[in-house]
Design a protein around this nucleic acid. Structure first.
Length: 650
RNA sequence: GCCUUGGUGGUGGAACUGGUAGACACGCAGGACUUAAAAUCCUGUUCGCAGCAAUGCGAGUGCGGGUUCGAUUCCCGCCUGAGGCACCA
């Protein structure tokens, strides 16, 4: 996550260096390159400039003019996509040379599309022995390679290390590369031909959307120039509209409002992250007419405790939110420079897709197990709702789409079997399931709890309703502790027993711990255990059930609230005090210890937790089964971990 | 190619600091209630071998090694799934 953000920002430390250019029609020109490795300056064997670089026009020699023109035309003919996809090595020599400022060596200047115009200066110094791309380029065009790495360079592939000692590097010989960077930078600055520089990756982040729902820009256009509204005209509110359809010529819906257009107001609106980057601050002080949030108020509420979001927000919402917060912090408007205390990445619920295989050019469908016998089949997504497991309902398939009305099938064992794949859930993949049906059948609480019960929140997994019955049974069982189908109300005001209090307080502890560490699936299983045990104890006592309901509330809020009110409570369960764990209810006096002999469990012994190690050893050795194993051998070691286990080494 | 993660029964998963692997649930099998079904309840369910049985023995957390009295957990090497990054000099 942090790495994604780091990559997105793309901060790099390097240097800009000016090189004299020689052997060209127009004298006195300089080539400015950006490099993160000034230490490798004695290994520069050629320069590369981007095909869009402006120097091309003035440094290309007459001899090379035709070749350069041809190359630039070729590059223009290739789309961005092509350039990304097929990474062909291509380039062209300009005929010009740069001069290495330290040793006067003439360095040929090449053009290649592997250098991007938009980053750094659009020009690089190429060091083939230290950079993979430069190395491949040099090999491809037979450019001699200078080795400044000594034994660290094998001549077969580039080595990008910073830890080697420099060779062939004049005043840097023997210096570790990492340390040489600062030395070179200092020299360059003294010579007035270079400067240490931090670079960022530029992003095309359009802060503008052609839609209605977003903050309107307080911008007014006059003769094609944008002017900000004066402060007295703020806030600028979205106008009421009847329709959200796009404006003429693909503009935003605001372009449909005559009044808005007449005032020449900007018709685009701000993107989602404009408001979502700081709305949590406004929530703290929503009615403040003077400022976005009073400092005393934000000091009181402080940071957001928990941010739950998928990784897709890493470089979207989360990153911008952090940036805005840092800016507001620097300006002194808030007292913290990170918006969120804690981050939780929930996993994605994926879809489980099903496929059918159509013989090319026909309406004949081949069952999954048979497709290897055919050469050309089309693999097509099929609606998961007409597939039972992996068996296709062929009649439903015929009805699914008009095209398939006349489809025929090649079956295996009388069935048409589908292929499967786990993918992102998507309508286009026909693997979506509608939660409404499940909510209608089982209720929202069951649905909610089942999602939690599926497994750890941060894990992605395919949606599968196989176990939902179990959660639903649990909720019904919880209900039956209060109301019996035949007898009606069964809950009572009797005083709880020690055993019942133990069950309750075990549950309080477990829910607390598991919720704290976002282990919702195990918390749900804890509730199941608690309800199972209370049912076994036939406990229908209010004194136990009421606290349990409060624990359950975040997990099954509707049922909890309903039962809470049926118990006669007049205020919401959301306002009830959270139960306090009392360890005295769950203390054990004895433990059923597993007794291992050489690491294998051979028996269990119930032993008091008060017993000393010597007493335990005596008890264990007296045991018949243990004696059988120990017989004839000597006890080498006795391991006793109080409250855990016993191990005998013989 | 680089980085981050995961791999445990038929299935989803549990085991929090190295201490009884498989909690809880699904599914399956058998049983109770019922004219029947639904609902509910009870019993069993990692695999293999032996036994009428209670039970016993052995193997077992992707694979191969190591550390340890003891490893799903720690270390080394490998296989494999998922996600992200990738001409950024």
């Amino acid at each position: 996550m942090k790495e994604m953000q780091t990559n997105w920002i793309g901060k790099s430390y390097g240097a800009e260096i000016d090189f004299e250019i020689t052997g060209v029609p127009t004298a006195g020109q300089q080539l400015k390159v950006y490099t993160t490795r000034p230490d490798t300056i004695f290994g520069v064997d050629f320069m590369v400039i981007a095909p869009e670089h402006e120097l091309i026009n003035t440094i290309t020699t007459a001899d090379q003019q035709a070749a350069v023109d041809e190359y630039c035309t070729y590059v223009k003919s290739r789309s961005e996509r092509e350039r990304q996809a097929e990474k062909k090595i291509s380039g062209c020599f300009t005929g010009a040379y740069a001069i290495n400022p330290f040793n006067g060596v003439k360095i040929p200047i090449w053009i290649s599309e592997y250098v991007l115009a938009g980053y750094g200066t659009g020009a690089i110094m190429a060091v083939p022995c230290g950079d993979d791309r430069d190395f491949k380029f040099a090999q491809h065009f037979n450019i001699p390679i200078t080795n400044i790495l000594g034994d660290a360079f094998n001549g077969e592939e580039a080595n990008s290390t910073k830890d080697a000692k420099l060779h062939n590097s004049d005043f840097l010989n023997g210096v570790v590369m990492r340390d040489a960077i600062a030395i070179v930078n200092k020299r360059l600055e003294e010579m007035g031909i270079g400067i240490a520089k931090v670079n960022y990756r530029m992003r095309d982040a359009a802060f503008s959307r052609q839609r209605y729902w977003g903050e309107p820009f307080p911008i007014q256009w006059k003769n094609g120039t944008a002017y900000p509204l004066t402060e007295t005209d703020l806030p600028l509110l979205l106008p009421e509209v009847d329709t959200y359809s796009p404006g003429p010529e693909g503009e935003g819906p605001l372009a449909n409002i005559p009044d808005w257009v007449a005032k020449e107001l900007e018709t685009n609106t701000m993107p989602g992250y404009a408001g979502s980057s700081w709305y949590f601050l406004r929530y703290m002080d929503p009615h403040n007419e003077q400022e976005f949030c009073n400092r005393a108020v934000s000091d009181y509420w402080n940071q957001v405790d928990l941010y739950i979001g998928g990784t897709e927000h890493a470089v979207g919402h989360l990153l911008y939110s952090r940036m805005w917060t840092k800016a507001l912090f620097d300006l002194g408007h808030i007292g913290f420079d990170e918006p969120f205390k804690k981050l939780l990445n929930q996993g994605m619920i994926q879809g489980s897709s099903r496929f059918v295989y159509r013989l090319k050019g026909t309406q004949e469908f081949i069952s999954y197990g048979l497709i290897k016998d055919f050469e050309t089949v089309d693999k097509l997504h099929v609606d998961v709702n007409i597939v039972d497991g992996i068996e296709l309902d062929t009649a439903a398939f015929n009805k699914w789409k008009p095209d398939y009305a006349g489809a025929s099938f090649q079956l295996e064992d009388g069935k048409y079997l589908c292929g499967t794949e786990v993918e992102k859930m998507s309508k286009s993949k026909f693997n979506t399931v509608n939660p409404d049906e499940l909510v209608q059948k089982f209720g929202a609480d069951t649905f909610r709890m089942y999602e939690m019960f599926l497994g750890p929140v941060e894990q992605s997994k395919p949606w599968d309703t196989k176990g939902i019955e179990g959660v639903h049974r649990f909720i019904k069982k919880l209900w039956r502790l209060f109301f019996d189908e035949l007898k009606g109300k069964v809950w009572n005001e009797e005083a709880p027993t020690a055993a019942e209090l133990k069950v309750l307080h075990k549950a309080i502890k477990k829910t607390q711990d598991d919720t704290e560490r976002f282990s919702f699936n195990t918390a749900v299983s804890g509730f199941m255990i608690c309800v199972n045990e209370l049912a076994d104890l036939k406990c229908n006592k209010r004194a136990v059930l009421e606290p349990l309901l409060i624990l359950v509330t975040p997990y099954a809020p509707h049922v909890a609230e309903e039962l809470w009110s049926l118990l006669g409570n007049t205020s919401s369960i959301l306002d009830a005090a959270y139960p306090v764990f009392d360890p005295s209810h769950v203390v054990e006096s004895a433990k059923e210890y597993p007794v291992s002999i050489n690491g294998k469990v051979r028996t269990n012994l119930l032993i008091s937790l008060d017993a000393t190690e010597a007493e335990v050893q005596e008890l264990v050795l007296a045991n018949e089964l243990v004696q059988k194993w120990v017989e004839g051998k000597s006890l080498k070691k006795f391991i006793f971990v109080k409250g855990r286990m016993i191990n005998l080494v013989i």
